[in-house]
Design a protein around this nucleic acid. Sequence first.
DNA 1: ATCTTCATGTAAATTGTTACATGATTTT
DNA 2: AAAATCATGTAACAATTTACATGAAGAT
Lengths: 192, 192
Amino acid sequence: MSLRYALLAILRVGALSGYDLQKQFSLSVGHVWHAPDSQIYPELRKMEQEGLVEAEEQTRGERGRRRLYHVTDAGDRAFLDWMAAPLDYQRVRDPAHLRAAYLETTTPEAAREFLARHITVWSAELAQWEGELARIDALSNPMLVRRLAVTAEEDRERTIAYKRFAYEGLVERARGEIEWARRGLDLVDRVS
Amino acid sequence: MSLRYALLAILRVGALSGYDLQKQFSLSVGHVWHAPDSQIYPELRKMEQEGLVEAEEQTRGERGRRRLYHVTDAGDRAFLDWMAAPLDYQRVRDPAHLRAAYLETTTPEAAREFLARHITVWSAELAQWEGELARIDALSNPMLVRRLAVTAEEDRERTIAYKRFAYEGLVERARGEIEWARRGLDLVDRVS
DNA sequence: ATCTTCATGTAAATTGTTACATGATTTT
DNA sequence: AAAATCATGTAACAATTTACATGAAGAT
């Protein structure tokens, strides 16, 4: 149930419509927490009912409408409370390592394909996250720039440092997965 | 939906009751795919309906009963098909890295607590997995021994090697998380 | 005109979590 | 006799995924 906190994290920086939020989301927090728009719209409505956000109804042209969501004080508090509370860790659920433990039951070709795909998938993630790191350093990430604009001078360094720290962790994870799968490919060659 | 394949992987080695399966599960695949008994019993029933397993009804004492589940040919094929098919990767959903990206919004104390807990949680996982590696090497893991007993001589080395490979990956992951969180603690000290 | 982007959702199905519920058998 | 373990589930809820559905506004 971190979705609402991910949404609050973005909205706290400034009001957005569901649509814009969803785009910002996929460009920032979405790297760490995926959610499709069909989940975001209903969640915003629920958060509105619970008083965490307020919708400012706007019209667009003749009949177009949009709802601009603002974080309320209660929403702000909810976010800060969540940040200060212990994180609840979910149990591991890792289909790739599950399969890896049983690779002897399939053909070497299927095993190689699985590992090659693992490398492809994690390389894509790695590229994303390294790109994000570069954008953080170049201050060219729009979300980060928006955040820095509403951040007091003395807090800017920390803000950047933590964001960097988060992405570094993701980059290392991806590198680890890729190295592991490479070793797996060697292993397949060795034992088959 | 890897749960059923995790269950099949265990049952393929030999028939078990839901209760024993659940215990084996938590001692082996459970490290990679957690599932509570309240999920395992219904899943077994569903798999029975779909013809992947067959239940042998047994009595225990006067009125006690148990259902011993055997994998059917269809179940065996389903498992092998799954092993040979491309794995579907879920999108990232990582509350720890999500929170890490926003650590500047909380107090240094809360940030430290979060990171310390991250280290604790992953150290526990690490200990589990290193223990598992040691048990693989010592051939003292009961599940592995059962599996080797039904494995042809020439396939034993591969079986062990892949199991080792899977756990090595998990160990490295845990080490990475711990190192990352340690660096995070240094960072908190530096910026606050 | 038509294509893209803006804009907001509903519905159904699946998956997973938490709590509850029950009772037999074996061991101390 | 009590405690531990064996044994099997149901119920309610929460979270997630996938697919569907609709239409306005702005750009080419």
